[in-house]
Nucleic acid binder design. Structure first.
Length: 313
RNA sequence: GGUACGGUAGCCAAGCGGUAAGGCGAGGGUCUGCAAAACCCUUAUACGCGGGUUCAAUUCCCGCCCGUACCU
């Protein structure tokens, strides 16, 4: 108990896309002297603003360090990466950890805010991620094989993983092989959770599915009005290819067929709405199994929880 | 009014004398270096209505209703 209290307090605000994380997080951060660490795999990219629903902000120099501010609240891990670059969970975990610690050191309350469940887990549950970076050569040679061959190989090298992994998921099977081969140790033995580093309050924003879907539709329409097409066009003109992780996100990849003259803008909008809804569904599936999440219907409930958690008054 | 074509689950759609593919959508799930990704599972006693032929009709015939196109 005493040990628990010594751990820094971390507040996580999560929920499916378009549930209102940004606005809640800003209110909470203003009230509780917060720093926001974004856990969003797409908002990391520069020049991808409309499609990722990034709140407008500006980079300001504080001392030696430049920080992205949204309404006077410092935001980290947002708007900093070239869309041509890759960002991975390992990098997220390390950087997020750094920013959380920095906030604590500066006596500011860290808020982790986002919808990328895996990223949040990696930080909160202290994942020890195998230090085996993507090996292009190996991946290429492996992807030439059929999924069945690969799976058979995995059964030989790492039967434990083979038992659990999706047999048809080439990407996952290849990664398991990659780690096992390059490290010389089975992947299954390397999926380790360290001791929890934080005393953590997880708040989920609860929204009716129907209401959420309606908000998604409206948000997509707004994105189009705000000039999403031009934003994507600019990225394409800058030679960012569709195969990039950044360009494969919702809001971007849907424009490929449109620019190729295969579908109309109306169809883009429809696809965009549809895929965003499906994405929200997947996020909910992810969050559902985390029983620690305190689901709140209103902002006031969330604020109350935070208040109690921080023992303020 | 006439001619042609069509009417199959929420939507699209194949099929055909022996009670019916698939896709979309929807829902559920997996998740440790692409995670807004990738992958998996589930889903409905659906053949417009009424007759007839037949051992048997969603499938053939007749009539009706509805839709679409064209003609007058």
């Amino acid at each position: 108990m005493r040990l628990e209290n010594k751990k820094p307090k971390l507040i996580v605000l999560l929920g499916p896309t378009a549930c209102g994380k940004t606005s809640w997080s800003l209110r909470l951060a203003k009230k509780f002297n917060g720093d926001i660490i974004s856990a969003d795999s797409r908002q990391v990219y520069k020049d991808m603003n409309i499609g990722t629903a990034k709140e407008p902000g500006e980079w300001l120099r504080i001392g030696l360090r430049k920080t992205f501010f949204v309404q006077d609240i410092p935001h980290h891990l947002i708007d900093f990466l070239d869309p041509g670059k890759q960002f991975t969970i390992s990098e997220f975990r390390d950087k997020a950890l750094k920013y959380v610690k920095l906030a604590v050191k500066n006596r500011r309350q860290p808020f982790v805010v986002g919808g990328t469940g895996l990223y949040i887990s990696a930080l909160v549950d202290n994942f020890k991620i195998p230090k085996i970076p993507a090996n292009k050569k190996l991946r290429n040679s492996l992807s030439e094989k059929s999924i069945d061959e690969l799976f058979e190989l995995l059964t030989l090298i790492d039967p434990e993983s083979a038992k659990k992994i999706d047999k048809k998921n080439k990407r996952r099977v290849i990664r398991a092989l990659e780690v096992s081969i390059l490290s010389g140790e089975p992947f299954s033995k390397q999926k380790i959770k360290g001791e929890q580093l934080f005393n953590c309050l997880k708040i989920g924003i609860e929204t009716d599915r129907e209401v959420l879907y309606k908000r998604i539709d409206e948000r997509v329409d707004q994105m189009i009005k705000d000039g999403l097409e031009q934003e994507v066009k600019k990225l394409v003109d800058k030679k960012y290819i569709w195969e990039l992780p950044s360009m494969s996100g919702i809001g971007y990849r849907q424009f490929k067929d449109y620019f190729d003259g295969k579908i109309s803008l109306k169809q883009v909008v429809e696809n965009l709405k549809k895929e965003t809804r499906r994405y929200a569904k997947r996020q909910l599936t992810w969050f559902r199994r985390d029983k620690d999440i305190k689901w709140c219907k209103t902002y006031e409930e969330a604020e109350e929880l935070v208040c109690r958690f921080l023992e303020c008054k």
